[in-house]
Nucleic acid binder design. Structure first.
Lengths: 134, 134, 134, 134
DNA sequence: GTGGTCTAGACCACC
DNA sequence: GTGGTCTAGACCACG
């Protein structure tokens, strides 16, 4: 289970991590009870400062997604699947809402918008389709 | 023609302004040759620091949306409609793309996603319907 | 409005700050809309690293006690009084509960416990009485 | 005589053990000369790392609560009852003091505080009453 | 001026 | 080994 980080993107690194962990839980890639990579390990793998990883893990704890096994590491909470699914839904809904608001206030018709949505969906769904189908 | 600014939102105030001007041009609410409010005027109307307005207008000039009318203010460039429409399209496309990426990597099915999109579209399209239809 | 920090105590500095801010809001010393000292200012006043202050303020934001006025600083949210009062109550209740649990499981009688409580209350209430009464 | 450990609580496991042993001595559940369970035994019973048990027992020896019986294990010192009672008292007093400090600095009135104390006392005293009385 | 992010490196407690 | 805390200092975006 690995994460892909864009250190030069506009969204902070720690937030990319937080989001990806939540999405992974919602997707079922990370399941309750499973350990996440240690701070030091991830730090090496992603070539990112340990403090940045720690901050992401910290936020995931206060969001009740991870919990500490003291002295041993961090695990995904068993009750976090529902929470992460909800988080995913509101995250996506919010982004969709922003897209709609911009589109409509910019005079884009509902038809154009729907076309754009479907074409983008076709692109991304295909590329992920193989994994999803298996 | 007024703008609605959310001073506590996550997107910077100056960027909200830039975006709203571009969307207004794409929508046809602002047309070539039309003057935009003066920095001082907008600053009072929106209760926002004049520097922030100035920064937005400056960016709109370097984006070739506005141009100065020597000593009299700023006007919408006559060739900016196409440009703003393109900007709107790529802006919306980008947001849609992000929503799709998050949704799919979080295990949301294409069907769920489409439902969410349509329901949000129904909400916002209805509320804007009157203006759009005219 | 100043805070008293014990840098050598067992509780982390940033948490002492978080708690004191919440208690100050519950007490009415900090009211909605009021600005809190800037990170740099507090950092100088308390002789504490700015990052530590920032972390406390960060937590206070995610706890919906503070909100940013972008570019200008942080203010107490107008709806945080109730929240902080509740936080105070559960904080105190939790501590009392722990004291009771230890006392009873250690064979201390309810009478002894009540005496101890009243005597400590007399001590601290007197010392704060003057300020409270005014 | 068994201990109840919360491995995810905020207080370290070894300290929970130390405290519970002292409280048991103060309560009279553990008396001078009595043996405590072996490290290996407790480790299995509580599903806790033996090192953690060992650390707690070590601390209890340096606190003069336990003493080794050469080659046979650890026993409660005959003079430890008074010591543990004092430890219990200062432990409880300290916790009460912290609760009071937080309550008063958070604007909670002495009356509210007393109510809270009595209600919590009623709860816990009732539930422990049967055991205590027997 | 404000807060936010990231890096670097040190030290600690816990298991 | 694990995470947690703190310090130091740099850089950035925002108003």
């Amino acid at each position: 289970m690995y994460f892909s980080i864009d250190p030069n993107g506009e969204v902070p690194i720690y937030e990319q991590l937080v989001r990806q962990v939540k999405l992974a839980v919602a997707d079922g890639v990370l399941v309750g009870g499973q350990m996440v990579p240690s701070v030091r390990q991830l730090s090496k793998d992603l070539a990112i400062n340990p403090n940045t990883i720690a901050r992401a893990y910290q936020e995931l704890q206060s969001d009740l997604v991870l919990e500490p096994l003291r002295g041993r590491g961090l695990v995904v909470r068993r009750d976090s699947f529902t929470r992460c699914t909800k988080a995913r839904n509101s995250l996506v809904a919010e982004t969709v809402r922003r897209a709609l608001a911009d589109a409509l206030s910019g005079g884009m018709s509902a038809a154009e918008l729907r076309d754009l949505f479907e074409s983008e969906l076709a692109k991304q769904d295909v590329s992920n389709g193989k994994d999803t189908k298996s």
